[in-house]
């Protein structure tokens, strides 16, 4: 335990020293610091030691109508360098994106399928997820009778909790068909949330706090809801059981209902994105207290550093809970919406 505390302390000292090195001379820009962390980038920045920047270069994949497909390493574009006419735009409409400057001097964006920091993080997290689930499943393939212990037991606890208390309750009869999808969504979000909280290399990417990721998840849920919708579900949307003046000359209720069909997955998308992004932002903001207060003298800086570490640690604990809650809420609401779409004809009618 003491050894561990010593190691943490050492890491802390190193990080403070490191940060001091970085930002002591220049004015610390909190906004760009935070946005560069929660946003995406073409290389995975790890740290800076002295003058040397340590980062993982990632493949850039671009498809342009003039140049065709070009694949190269992102380190070629470091610090504003240009390669084959491509460079990372610094400001304007395409800030921090790769643009192509044509002969006429006009900038345009090629189709950008680069494996960015978030893409790589997604791939890593997916691999983690696959390893976790498949290794648990392989245990069940071997042993069919006894109850699992340790890791598999923990996985079973999580899986069966979601399966029995969320999916089964929300969808009801015939839930088995949807359980694999909802469990995949739950563990996908959970693993991505947890990995996002690890502050160094294989983790730390803001995947579930990225709108593209939550958009795909919400789109999948939307597709499942729509495809599992019964006749009664669509009837209640297009011709709801309300006084006919609310739907005949002006389709008031149908319009509201159709709007509701899209707001449900939209809310799912925004909720997950906003929660995770906000968590990252708060932690980064608290961390940047260390660097912001450098200019205020050693004593203030030291005090604020202590406070910042305490608050960051507290926020990380909160974020651990949030990571689980958001995965849970997304799964629960998806299950509830699917359950609602499987509505049968009411007995009252």
């Amino acid at each position: 335990m003491q050894k561990r505390i010593k190691i943490y302390f050492l890491l802390f000292i190193i990080s403070v020293f490191n940060a001091g090195n970085l930002f002591a001379a220049e004015q610390f820009d909190v906004k760009s610091f935070i946005f560069s962390h929660i946003g995406d980038s073409y290389e995975w920045h790890i740290t800076v030691i002295g003058e040397k920047e340590i980062s993982v270069p990632l493949p850039v994949i671009l498809i342009d109508k003039e140049n065709g497909i070009s694949i190269f390493v992102s380190s070629r574009l470091r610090k504003g360098a240009s390669y084959k006419g491509y460079r990372i735009s610094e400001k304007g409409e395409y800030a921090n994106k790769i643009v192509y400057t044509s002969a006429s001097g006009k900038e345009r964006r090629p189709v950008d399928l680069s494996i960015t920091k978030n893409s790589l993080a997604l791939i890593i997290n997916c691999s983690v997820l696959l390893i976790l689930i498949l290794s648990a499943a392989s245990w069940y393939r071997k042993d069919k009778q006894s109850a699992p212990k340790g890791f598999v037991g923990a996985m079973e606890m999580f899986i069966m909790d979601i399966n029995d208390n969320v999916i089964k309750n929300a969808i009801g009869k015939g839930y088995e068909k949807y359980a694999p999808y909802l469990l995949t969504v739950f563990f996908f979000i959970l693993i991505n949330n947890f990995m996002g909280l690890i502050p160094f290399f294989p983790g730390g990417a803001n995947t579930t706090g990225n709108i593209a990721v939550t958009f795909v998840l919400a789109l999948c849920t939307f597709a499942v809801i729509s495809f599992s919708g019964t006749k009664e579900y669509w009837k209640e949307i297009l011709w709801p059981n309300v006084p006919s003046w609310m739907k005949v000359p002006l389709p008031l209720m149908p319009a509201i209902e159709i709007f509701g069909v899209f707001t449900k997955p939209f809310a799912l998308m925004i909720r997950l994105f906003a929660n995770i992004m906000a968590g990252h932002t708060i932690i980064l903001g608290l961390t940047s207290l260390v660097f912001v207060t450098v200019a205020m003298g050693a004593a203030t800086n030291m005090g604020m550093t202590m406070l910042s570490v305490l608050l960051t640690a507290f926020m990380l604990f909160v974020e651990l809970i949030v990571a689980y809650i958001q995965a849970y809420v997304f799964t629960l609401l998806s299950a509830v919406f699917i359950g609602l779409s499987r509505v049968q004809k009411h007995a009252i009618n």
Binding site: L130, Y181, I211
Partner: peptide, 25 residues
């Protein structure tokens, strides 16, 4: 949403879903 990330997200989530929903859960 960034188109590149959308593409990789669809791909990785699709693969994960395909494998896990068939051989995992």
């Amino acid at each position: 949403p960034e188109s590149g990330l959308l593409f990789w997200m669809c791909l990785s989530f699709g693969i994960v879903f395909f494998i896990v929903a068939r051989y995992g859960f």
